[in-house]
């Protein structure tokens, strides 16, 4: 074995990943070549040094949080099952066994509150919608500034009607919408734009009892305003000023004229 070959397989040798034949050849080379042997020793010393490096461990809080969210996801998946039915199937079900469907829905389809990281989900959706490759070529399911085009597009894709408002007189231009099933939560995502800044509005079903006034916060550098009303949870995300985003939220909340 020459030094070039030895250098290539030296680390695999240290890591015990070589086949027996090559392993023996390299061991022989190291006995006869002081240069390769010194590289070997240096790398072996590094390996030893790593043993003193303490591993970062997941905190108990993270562990608990993951376990809790998994349980919530499990329940949400249970309750989401009837909603995966196609619209026609759902209609048949509702017509044929309305009372039964209602009875089961009362315990099965109880909407879950947004998980504690609903803002994370909203931000992830915001970023996903940002990744548009070029103008006019977006990752949106429907690209239109016409609310009468965008709103009906959601019918049959999700089981609720997200409010789609024309806010162009306020400077917010509707860009389009998409659905997103991040973290098991099927949601509607509406994309607006103002002065070159994107604003996304995520709408997800939540427990009907959960009413929440708009709350502004910043998370990972994004402004987030979230609220809940009438069984829907809203989270709007942007890189504009939180105060301005709050105004946007108020416009969305204002009853349609």
């Amino acid at each position: 074995m020459n030094c070039t070959h030895a250098a290539k397989v030296l680390d695999a040798y240290l890591d015990g990943e070589l086949d027996a034949a090559t392993d023996a050849q390299l061991a022989g080379h190291l006995r006869s070549c002081p240069e390769c042997a010194s590289v070997h020793d240096a790398h072996r010393a590094l390996r030893a040094a790593f043993a003193d490096l303490q591993r970062h461990r997941a905190s108990d809080a993270l562990r608990r949080s993951v376990t809790r969210e998994l349980a919530a996801l499990e329940r949400a998946a249970l309750s989401a099952r009837p909603r995966i039915l196609s619209w026609s199937q759902a209609a048949v079900l509702a017509g044929a066994a309305a009372s039964l469907a209602f009875a089961s829905a009362s315990w099965l389809a109880r909407p879950q509150p947004l998980p504690s990281d609903d803002r994370q989900v909203a931000i992830a959706r915001h970023v996903a919608a940002l990744e548009a490759p070029a103008e006019g070529e977006t990752r949106l399911g429907i690209a239109s500034s016409d609310r009468h085009v965008v709103k009906p597009w959601f019918a049959g894709k999700i089981d609720f009607a997200p409010p789609v408002r024309d806010l162009s007189e306020h400077g917010y231009v509707l860009v389009g919408g998409r659905t997103d099933a991040r973290l098991g939560q099927l949601g509607a995502v509406l994309v607006y734009r103002i002065r070159g800044h994107q604003i996304t509005l995520s709408v997800t079903r939540v427990a009907a009892a959960r009413e929440q006034v708009p709350t502004a916060s910043t998370l990972h550098g994004f402004a987030v305003v979230s609220w809940a009303s009438a069984g829907l949870g809203f989270a709007t995300v942007s890189d504009i000023e939180p105060r301005e985003l709050q105004q946007f939220a108020e416009l969305i909340r204002a009853p349609a004229r």
């Binding site: 970062h56 993270l62 969210e69 996801l73 098991g184």
Partner: peptide, 24 residues
Amino acid sequence: AYNLARWLLRDADAADDVVQDASL
């Protein structure tokens, strides 16, 4: 998973968020 995230992100809070999201 967390150790890898910490070394990649170099940020404890981000590692918590990302690992939780990835776990789900």
